[in-house]
């Protein structure tokens, strides 16, 4: 009960922060719009529009960038002070970071459900039609991973700016090699290898297979590995989070 109260408070904190709200709800739509518009001339013939392609890839990218919401929810200057008070209260340290993960996950999932619905029914982007729920599951698992990873980076590095600027770079690298911005096929063997290593590639491929081939073979392995990776992140949080070093 107490845990839920803390989580609810964190949830309200995120919602009240205009920058976080903007980056989770509006920015993905703007990104889809801009990328779709910019690359419109490369696509044609109605099979797949630029918006269909960048709809999936940009949502994947923004779902990963939930990391920054997590670091912010955990260690932003104003939140930090409240956290310090909690540290002195008889609360298990796991409750402190788990509440951040839960609240970020809820905000992220809700906003991406909203974006997927708006995209599919409002703007006519192909997010799978009847298969939309599966895409929602996939993206929410990704959001869960992002929340856990961001919180883990905070626990390890102990500073918000540090955590968010360092985690940005692997996200961008994995995204670039995962084919978020451009197709990575035909760029040689090294890139092909890096692309197969990039988790982003498998998420995007899983989504495209569901949407265009009704092929669900990747869904289970991808969601399970995301869950597993999230569990590892939580474990690292438990091991590295030291409330006594958590000072302003």
């Amino acid at each position: 009960m107490r845990f839920l109260k803390i989580a609810a408070f964190d949830f309200r904190n995120i919602i009240r922060n205009p920058t976080l709200l903007f980056s989770n709800m509006v920015l993905p739509l703007v990104l889809i719009g801009v990328m779709g518009f910019v690359t419109q001339s490369f696509f044609g013939s109605g099979l797949l529009s630029s918006y269909d392609y960048y709809g999936i890839t940009m949502i994947t990218l923004s779902a990963l960038l939930v990391i920054m919401t997590a670091t912010n929810a955990f260690m932003e200057e104003q939140v930090k002070k409240a956290n310090i008070r909690m540290i002195y209260a008889p609360i298990a340290k796991a409750e402190i970071y788990l509440s951040k993960i839960l609240s970020t996950f809820l905000v992220g999932t809700l906003s991406f459900i909203f974006i997927l619905m708006i995209g599919q029914y409002g703007f006519g982007i192909n997010f799978g039609g009847d298969h939309l729920p599966y895409i929602v599951i996939l993206i929410s698992m990704l959001v869960l991973f992002g929340s856990c990873f961001g919180t883990m980076m905070c626990c390890v590095l102990g500073d918000e700016e540090k955590a968010s600027s360092i985690s940005q770079l692997p996200v961008l690298l994995f995204s670039a090699f995962g084919g978020i911005f451009f197709s990575t096929y035909g760029l040689g063997k090294t890139v092909a290898f890096l692309s197969n290593v990039s988790p982003v590639k498998w998420i995007v491929e899983c989504a495209f297979r569901i949407i265009y081939d009704n092929d669900f073979t990747l869904l289970l392995p991808v969601t399970l590995s995301l869950l597993g990776a999230s569990a590892v992140c939580i474990l690292v949080c438990q091991l590295t989070f030291k409330p006594e070093e958590f000072t302003c």
Binding site: N17, T19, L20, S41, M68, E76, Q78, E161, F181
Partner: peptide
Amino acid sequence: RNISLATSGISILTCLLAGCLFNYDSQ
């Protein structure tokens, strides 16, 4: 607050629109 978040967002959007990553013809 949120300086790095806002800056990243603005940079990515403006660079894309300005054609830093790839060239495009706008109609």
